[in-house]
Design a protein around this nucleic acid. Structure first.
Lengths: 142, 142
DNA sequence: GTAGAGCTTGACGTGGGCGTCAGGGCAAGG
DNA sequence: CCTTGCCCTGACGCCCACGTCAAGCTCTAC
């Protein structure tokens, strides 16, 4: 099969396949015209790459899986190097999720605080004069 | 104060300040030499920007906060536009954290499955022949 | 006068994973 | 012959927040 068909069957683009080849990740045979030629095993490799990419793995991180498959193993993660990548990625994810959770809490508290402050201001304003819009970004207290 | 001092006091670089100015986020007055001149209020604006950047806000997302401060409000988040940015960011964070959590689970299950498969293979290998290392990435079952 | 520190603008580099031309070749159908 | 549709390589664009280098000016200290 040629590049367009492989791309379609994997739900990606020809540009992506050429890119992978340029990175040495998915080399292709060539036929007489110079057209790239692929077979079913290439489709497997490609699917492996795409799955990991969807998980947020970097291209280089998919390499052990691809090499593992090419070495004849039943799954891309049948090799120790792949397992190591899994573990590293889990650590990264845990760290990242924890960081994002911390940020989320901080932003949430900021929002709550700011809303409380606005409510207090509105209450203040309701007593002396009357309700008055504020902070219109262009016509403030001037 | 000049650009170097402001950068140092905010823990950033002169390049960053010039970049913010180029984006219209932190304009500077100029003295006779053409040197940029800043005052304490600029430091406040800058700290506001940096804090939000550390939270993962994009530069454009910090703009409402900066304009709010410049409008004379006590805090960068005293204005509705800032609160909207907070809320949007909370949504984004929740979505992202949920996605990462899902990925984390999937990767975790993949790792567990792959480790189990390896253990099963090792047990199989122990019965017929003897323990045998495998998948050395170069000298497989060939 | 001269060295050094700090300032100026302009412009290119970075990283990742491609998208998107530009310019051309090959094969089949009408 | 011409169109259509696929393929090729090469190269620039994108996003974002800057880093880094180049070439030159200003001010201070010695």
């Amino acid at each position: 099969m040629r590049i367009g068909e492989l791309a379609a069957r994997a739900g990606t683009t020809t540009r992506t396949l050429r890119y992978y080849e340029s990175r040495g990740l998915l080399p292709a045979r060539r036929d007489g015209n110079g057209y790239r030629t692929y077979d079913e095993s290439d489709l497997r490799l490609l699917r492996q790459i795409r799955t990991l990419q969807d998980f947020g793995f970097g291209l280089e991180e998919t390499r052990p899986f691809v090499e593992c498959l090419r070495a004849g193993h039943p799954e891309g993660d049948s090799c120790p190097a792949s397992l190591q990548v899994y573990r590293r990625k889990l650590d990264e994810l845990d760290t990242l999720i924890a960081e994002l959770g911390a940020v989320r809490e901080k932003v949430g508290r900021q929002l709550a605080r700011a809303e409380a402050a606005r409510a207090a201001l509105a209450a203040d304003a309701a007593v002396p004069g009357g309700p008055e819009p504020e902070c219109e970004l262009g016509g403030g207290p001037r």
